[in-house]
Design a protein around this nucleic acid. Structure first.
Length: 568
DNA sequence: TGCGGCTATTG
DNA sequence: CACAATAGCCGCAG
């Protein structure tokens, strides 16, 4: 335990070289205390602060050192939330926090023949006369003294406090503040997800790969063997067009030529297009099968297994806490788009099992919250929200679902169009909310999600564009903004649920091993699985209460205990 | 070698 | 002219 640090304190922390350092809280009267890693004082059980850090790079260093951090204030994550920019660095975060023009940020001098490296003047403080951070302070590999380190960590605390003041000026400041904390703690979760990895049964994975890509090439024959397996795979298609000239099945234009040769004309060669003509010629079925195998062989083949799955049988990718248009979590290495068949290889370790939980109909439920549509909120009281909506619209369930999704995505044509008109009648408040977002997007106005994330609508380049093209681009931007408000708020709900589960799971020694937009996968000892199920459900109720203070909207999750992901 | 197009998968 | 994401291979330009 650290002298003077109390629960809830905001304390700047940094990793400087081989050491960690944190600012002392104001009331202790001290300055930064550099510490070698690992640093067990950080895991003080009862009294713990909210550690302020520049970015999840610090969280990764902490996790790698075996330090458990419970909550954070991540300057980069909060900066992204407030200012809607993804490519940021400390110089920019600092400028944003203090309202300084970004084009005034001083650039670091390049080190080359004409500008040899010169050690910075140690007497210079971190901030220059104009108020910007000095570049060499950001580089921070030159820190020689504890005094420098102390200044650096205190500065982190300062930026965090300034960001909090910025949040206070926004509409719904309390909610945005909660959102900023959640985004920050999600950065910790991402660092942990990268460290822990997803348990994979390597032999099961290899069996799936063998069935599509053939046996693993040995080192002595890899080139030739790989060619041979590819040729075998291709031959299963060519056998249906034996007189056809040789073509490359990986080239869509040549596939069209091949199909034309057997008398089938298609506009493109996508799976959906091919399926519509599958009974015209047996080659279509063979081609679809080939595509599936080719995908496993290339994307989820031996190379993927070797690169992404460690010796400990854990699949690891890089995690981002808020990427893309609306701030969803993203992951690489197939963690977010693993083909269904390969999910059979995601298996809990001996003595452990998975608790898998996914939110039901999260986007329309979130829409009811953010739009404050009382009629839609009533529909969320049902386990299946689409049932009351279907009754309200006087259509079948499938049509109701299409209408709701179409409304959120900005669909204007197609089969759902008639039901969409009924949506306007039945849920005018929700539809008005969506339309307002759409209009803002079309006009190029930035919007903010429920949790306060700024969605930037960059001004369109109207030059060299005819009117029809301009209209189509404006419509696309409208749909983008409309959807970002819903998808973004849904992402915020999910992350709040995830960090709540993460916090509660500590006592069970359970670990979140996968986050998938509306789904959580938790790795837990078999005996603790029922407790983990209760924990997940309790966390959902808590999340719903925090997200919707008046509890007018109901959220549901489907939770199960499975040893194999595909069994859910 | 970098990038747009096409195609696949997922929520 | 339905939203978001990651990721592979191809052809083409340079």
């Amino acid at each position: 335990m650290v002298e003077g640090i109390r629960r809830g304190d905001l304390v700047g922390i940094a990793v400087v070289g081989e050491r960690g350092a944190f600012a002392a809280p104001e009331h202790s009267g001290g300055s930064a205390i550099p510490q070698p890693w690992p640093q067990h004082v950080l895991r003080a059980d009862s009294d713990w602060p909210r550690w302020a850090m520049w970015s999840s790079d610090t969280a990764r260093a902490l996790v790698a050192a075996g330090v458990e951090v419970r909550s954070a204030w991540d300057l980069r994550a909060v900066d992204r939330l407030l200012h809607g920019r993804w490519r940021t660095d400390p110089a920019r975060i600092w400028a944003n926090a203090f309202g300084l023009a970004p084009d005034g940020i001083p650039l670091d001098m390049p080190i080359d023949l004409f500008h040899p490296y010169q050690p910075p003047d140690a007497a210079e403080g971190p901030v220059d006369a104009a108020g910007y951070l000095r570049p060499h302070w950001i580089a921070r590999d030159w820190y020689a003294t504890d005094a420098h380190t102390a200044q650096w960590t205190e500065l982190i605390t300062t930026v965090a406090r300034t960001q909090i003041e910025q949040v206070q000026t926004l509409e719904a400041a309390e909610r945005v503040l909660a959102s900023a904390r959640c985004e920050s703690t999600t950065e910790l979760l991402c660092a942990e997800l990268e460290h822990v990895g997803l348990p994979i049964d390597r032999r099961a994975a290899e069996a799936i790969i063998v069935s599509h890509a053939g046996p693993r090439p040995t080192r002595s024959n890899d080139e030739a063997a790989a060619r041979a397996t590819r040729a075998t795979r291709d031959a299963d298609v060519f056998v249906h067009a034996q007189d056809a000239p040789p073509i490359d099945l990986r080239n869509p234009a040549q596939v069209r030529t091949l199909l034309r040769f057997v008398g089938i004309e298609v506009p493109d060669t996508r799976a959906g297009t091919l399926r519509r003509v599958r009974d015209k010629h047996p080659i279509i079925e063979a081609l679809l099968t080939w595509r599936k195998s080719e995908r496993i062989a290339t994307t989820y083949g031996y190379a993927w297994l070797d690169e992404a799955v460690g010796d400990d049988g854990r699949l690891r990718g890089s995690w981002s806490s808020s990427d893309g248009a609306a701030g969803r979590m993203t992951a690489s290495a197939g963690l977010h788009n693993l083909v269904g068949e390969m999910r059979a290889a995601v298996v809990a370790e001996p003595g452990f099992t998975f608790v898998r939980a996914d939110l039901g109909q999260i986007e329309p439920r979130v829409l009811a919250v953010i739009s404050r549509d009382a009629a839609l909120a009533r529909a969320t009281q049902q386990d299946d929200l689409y049932a009351p909506v279907a009754a309200q619209l006087d259509v079948d369930r499938a049509t109701a679902k299409l209408a709701v999704l179409g409304a959120m995505y900005g669909q204007t044509t197609g089969h759902g169009a008639a039901a969409l008109a009924r949506m306007r009648n039945a849920y005018p408040v929700a539809m008005a909310y969506l339309d307002a977002g759409d209009r803002a997007g079309q006009l190029g106005e930035d919007v903010r999600t429920y949790g306060g994330r700024l969605i930037r609508m960059n001004a369109a380049n109207a030059d060299a564009m005819d009117e029809r093209e301009a209209r189509s681009i404006a419509a696309a931007r409208g749909r983008y903004a409309r959807n970002a408000l819903v998808q973004g708020a849904a992402a915020e709900f999910f992350k709040l649920w995830a960090v709540t589960v993460r916090a509660r799971a500590v006592e069970l020694d359970a670990r979140i091993v996968l986050c998938l937009h509306d789904e959580l996968l938790i790795h837990v000892a078999v005996d603790d699985a029922p407790a983990a199920v209760r924990l997940v459900d309790d966390a959902l109720q808590e999340t719903a209460f925090r997200f919707v203070p008046n509890n007018a909207v109901r959220f549901v999750a489907d939770t199960s205990i499975v040893s194999r992901w595909s069994d859910a």
